[in-house]
Design a protein around this nucleic acid. Structure first.
Length: 493
RNA sequence: CGGGGAUUAGCGCAGUUGGCUAGCGCGCGUCGUUCGGGACGACGAGGUCGCGGGUUCAAGUCCCGCAUCCCCGACCA
């Protein structure tokens, strides 16, 4: 039998299940370059959809796109102390600009004569290169705010990598803004986190909690970092997007200053925010099942696949012509439909292939259906099959796609709620994190010592201080001191 | 950077105490029969056994060195 490897989700092997889904859906694979990923056409089509939606949102909130260099002079990176400390350990460095033939034999070697005066860092993020330009562009309060976004690749030389979740090179957008006041920057920071939340919930159907990062988890160089933390099917957290209020830290390092209305020269207040291809890992780990990927209709490259079924050439002709009609009807409603008319595959093989790729809706059309004026409609998430009339088919499908989008989100939310625990005792905390991993809400005193000890003892890190806090106060889960707010602990990707 | 494991066809693997022309499954090609849940048969193509040394009449197999990859930790979007 031509049976491929099965995709099976087990608690102890969730990572393997995840990789199997990525492979089965034909989204990406490891490249020969260490830690780097090849995003295959199907995976890239999904990224393009996410990118286009987010790009529209970013522009709708008043931002414009620009592009800055891949290379950052080493001296730039070291201007902001905590920033360089945060990234120094994972930077790729360009030291030479030329190769030459190996004098001892085959191939080429780095020409030692071609050493750079100053090494160049392949950007791990673009704060420094962008703000060196902002310093020139911003002179007056009239130049503010600067609201620029960039779509780019960045490189972080991570020790261990995993497709989409952590790769040495990844694609993202990074927004970098400059404002006249702290409050304006803070508003911007929160506004963009909200854009990410909108994208993640209403398009990707991820279930998440927005909140603020602890001091130890915040971005290197930021005043405050806000995050959306999504929950995966194994109860672990995935940081799906972050928005930073940078304060004046970089403004001071790069001397980004403006003459204010009151005549004083002041440092600008800045923000940066980013969302990467990692979010596709979250998409996969939130919705997929043992048959493969499950895509929310709003980001699926193909929303409806029509599988024709026939035996004889006569049947083929009539079935394909009806399939064409259905496809046209769907396209007229802006539904991304395609007919799989490959006649070297059996219908079963096609069903399987499109299930692995997560196409939301499948329509089966064969001689029996044509005779009865109906077609078979199958939803990817529930697997429900039903016969529907061919004539008003597009309307029904349109509603079903909308419903599936809602259902996926509701399912993800219900799942997160089921794996969310409010815990007051450290003993219970340890038990829960081990036995039923999820988001644990506990009071925390705010000390890095408690945070670090908990991480050491339980492998759970602080994810965020949720905006949504229940009334009251309590005692720190670790040390017992008085605490004002709850923080979420979870194992994380 | 520590601790394990691996490297044989495109992919996944087997290969005995060293011994014949290095196998198996999937995939791939041609033809035929099939086609409502991953079709079947026949024939066929495909290998510098990671690299470099060594031992031997004989090395995928034994020895030495090197390289690369994977997994588990520390680091991270």
């Amino acid at each position: 039998m031509a049976q491929e490897k099965n995709i099976t989700k087990r608690d102890d092997d969730f990572s393997q299940w995840y990789l199997d889904v990525v492979e089965a859906a034909d989204m990406a694979e490891h490249s020969p370059v260490r830690g780097c990923m090849v995003i295959k056409p199907y995976g890239y089509a999904i990224w393009e959809n996410i990118r286009d939606i987010l790009d529209r949102m970013i522009k709708a909130t008043g931002h414009v796109n620009a592009y800055f260099p891949l290379f950052i002079p080493k001296s730039f990176l070291s201007k902001e102390a905590s920033h360089v400390e945060g990234f120094a350990k994972e930077c790729a460095v360009v030291t030479h600009y030329r190769l030459k033939n190996d004098p001892d034999g085959k191939g080429v070697v780095v020409d030692p004569e071609a050493k750079l005066e100053e090494e160049l860092i392949v950007r791990p993020t673009s704060e420094t290169i962008m703000y060196s330009m902002y310093a020139k562009w911003i002179q007056s309060w009239r130049d503010l705010p600067v609201l620029i976004n960039q779509w780019a690749n960045v490189v972080r030389w991570e020790m261990r990598t995993r497709l989409f979740l952590r790769t040495a090179e990844f694609l993202w957008q990074e927004g970098h803004t400059a404002h006249a006041t702290h409050d304006e920057a803070e508003t911007e920071t929160l506004k963009m986190l909200d854009v990410y939340k909108d994208l993640a919930e209403n398009y990707l159907a991820l279930s998440l909690v927005p909140g603020q990062k602890s001091e130890s988890e915040k971005f290197a160089g930021a005043l405050r970092t806000y995050t959306i933390e999504a929950m995966m099917q194994d109860g672990k957290a995935l940081q799906a997007g972050t928005s930073h209020n940078l304060g004046q830290n970089f403004a001071k390092a790069f001397e980004v200053m403006f003459a204010d209305k009151d005549g004083e020269r002041k440092h600008v207040w800045q923000t940066s925010w980013g969302l990467s291809t990692r979010i596709m890992g979250g998409l996969i780990m939130t919705h997929s099942d043992d048959k493969g990927l499950v895509l929310p209709p709003k980001i699926a490259p193909t929303q409806v696949v029509i599988v024709p079924i026939y035996k004889t050439p006569e049947e083929q002709a009539s079935v394909l012509s009806v399939a064409q009609e259905i496809e046209q009807g769907l396209k007229a409603k802006q539904i991304l439909a395609k007919t799989d008319n490959r006649d070297f595959l059996t219908p079963g093989a096609k069903f399987n292939e499109w299930e692995k790729k997560g196409v939301p809706v499948r329509i089966e059309i064969g001689p029996k259906d044509i005779a009865s004026g109906k077609a078979v409609f199958v939803r990817r998430d529930t697997g429900t099959k039903q016969a529907i009339e061919i004539s008003p088919l597009a309307e029904v499908i349109e509603k079903q796609l909308q419903q599936m989008q809602i259902d996926l989100f509701e399912k993800a939310k219900a799942y997160r709620k089921a794996k969310t625990f409010h815990i007051d005792s450290y003993e219970e905390f340890k038990k829960v994190i081990e036995e039923t991993p999820g988001f644990i809400y506990s009071y925390w005193c705010g000390s890095e010592k408690c945070e670090a000890e908990i991480a050491e003892e339980t492998k759970a890190s602080t994810r965020c201080i949720p905006f949504d806090q229940t009334e009251g106060s309590g005692k720190c889960i670790k040390c017992g001191r008085a605490a004002e707010k709850k923080i979420i602990f979870a194992k994380a990707y």
